[in-house]
Design a protein around this nucleic acid. Sequence first.
DNA 1: CTTACAAGAATAT
DNA 2: ATATTCTTGTAAG
Length: 184
Amino acid sequence: VKQEQKYRYGSVQSEFGAIVVVWRCNNNKIVRVFLPRQKDIFQSSAYYIHGVDSIPGRTAAKILRKVERLSAGRSVALHLDLLDWGMIYPFQKQVLRLEYRVPRGRVSTYGRLARRVGKSSVARAVGNALARNPFPLIIPCHRAVRSDGSLGGYAGGVSMKRRLLEYEGIEFDEHDRVIAGSFW
DNA sequence: CTTACAAGAATAT
DNA sequence: ATATTCTTGTAAG
């Protein structure tokens, strides 16, 4: 589906399992982040067959270190310029960049994000865009929940989503819903 | 409070 | 062109 491209990947260990970060060699930007739950996808993605294991460069090591801290729910600044937006459609890009602005320790809802993007009726499309977020953790799509505060889905598994939010200080009621007041 | 469902935009096949 | 989706608001049980 694409011309010959070379990729590299590095991985870090987290409490959830191994997280893989894939770079494109020619611009050295991040193409994808695979959460532990997505391991099978990573292994079966012929798209990345060139990503034979390699020793990351110095900057790569730095990024891996940051991703590791993100997986522990800590506060980390990662510039969006490090990401490769080339293959991402405008709408999804819009949603992802908006999601990036959701502050640590707060959550938004698919509906609220939809309103900020334009129409209030695109909540489901927002969920769709976040579901295929190529940069989980870096783009904090775990900070998007349903309008009633329930968790919704997560590519890395709902338990991981909840854990990440707990690390950020989000509190839940007895029915696993984010308590009102922390919405962005 | 708990289903049930249409509406709805974007993307995957 | 059709199926699918990390939804939402409303309506009925």
